[in-house]
Simulated scan of single mutants.
Amino acid sequence: MTNDGFLLPSAPNFRDLGGHRTREGRTVRDGLLYRSDALHSISEQDRAAYDGFGIRQLIDLRTHHERDRLPDLVPEGAEYAAVGVQNAEAPGANFVDLLADRERARKAFGNGAAERFMFGVYRDLVTEDEALDGYRDLVERAAKGPTALVFHCSAGKDRTGWGAALLLTLLGVDRGAVTADYLTSNERQANTDHWMRQLSRHSGLPWEDVEPMTRVRAEYLDSAFGHVDEVYGSFDNYVVDGLKLSGGTLESLRERLLV
């Protein structure tokens, strides 16, 4: 780890999900499961470290708009999989183009609408078909595909945040630790702040209108878990009826990732 606490300073939200304790007293293995922000910006100084993590599977949760604009740097020897969890044609999914249109940006995010937008994003990550298919794929790849594995979106905080919360909960990590891991993203948003401030200036929106989209909040994650209970009745029902994950997949996930 670098002196500033970042495994990869050029991708500051790249981090290991290992080390978490489960309610049954087991521990998530180190070095097998990583979460990250976008992986197009890995610097030359960080490239050796990036290749040295032994990544064998890279899962890109971004939409095709994002993937096409900023393709990932894939570690040598790794499989790359585009696994979308968001309807690419939904309002707000083509985020950069939306913020480039001042009138559309004002209607979408001005006067407190950005916060409402974020709560909507988290609801959709629980129930939309793309999200259900994508997160099922993520879990199955973590359970059965080559490791080490890294999954990411653009900022590594929302789509990736729900993916990490899902995986840790499936592994038996308690909600408090899941939320703490989720909130750690707030300390690692330097890259997001840079491009969001640029977009804010181009859109003409004041920073306070954009800021709710630049950080995670416990209420966002709580709203996703609450929506799980509202729609499916329980997290276990969400896993079986929504994600349609098999008992064998869950057993493989735990055997692989817990010690």
Rank of each mutant, 00 (worst) to 15 (best):
D101H: 00
A38S: 15
L32V: 07
P75W: 06
R29I: 08
S43I: 01
G92R: 04
G54R: 13
D97P: 00
R102T: 07
H64N: 12
G84E: 03
A88K: 12
N94G: 06
R102M: 03
V85D: 09
G25Q: 04
N87Q: 09
D30I: 00
N94R: 10
R29G: 04
V85T: 08
D46A: 03
V83L: 10
G54H: 11
D72S: 15
A78E: 08
E24Q: 14
L39T: 01
A82T: 09
Y80R: 09
R56W: 11
H40M: 01
L61Q: 02
A88Q: 11
H40S: 14
N87K: 08
E24D: 13
N94F: 01
L32C: 12
V28P: 08
S41L: 10
Q45L: 12
D51A: 15
D101R: 00
E44N: 07
E79I: 13
V83H: 06
E66Y: 08
Y80E: 00
R29D: 05
L33Q: 12
H65Q: 04
H65Y: 09
H65R: 06
R69C: 00
Y80L: 13
A49C: 09
R67Q: 14
G92F: 02
P91L: 07
V74P: 09
Q45V: 14
R102F: 00
L70N: 14
L99F: 07
R69M: 06
A49L: 11
A48I: 06
G31R: 13
D101S: 05
D68Y: 09
R69I: 01
Y34R: 15
G92M: 02
R67I: 15
R67M: 05
A48G: 13
D37A: 15
G52F: 02
S36H: 05
A90Q: 02
A82C: 10
R67P: 03
A82D: 13
I55C: 11
R62D: 05
D68F: 02
E66M: 04
L61G: 10
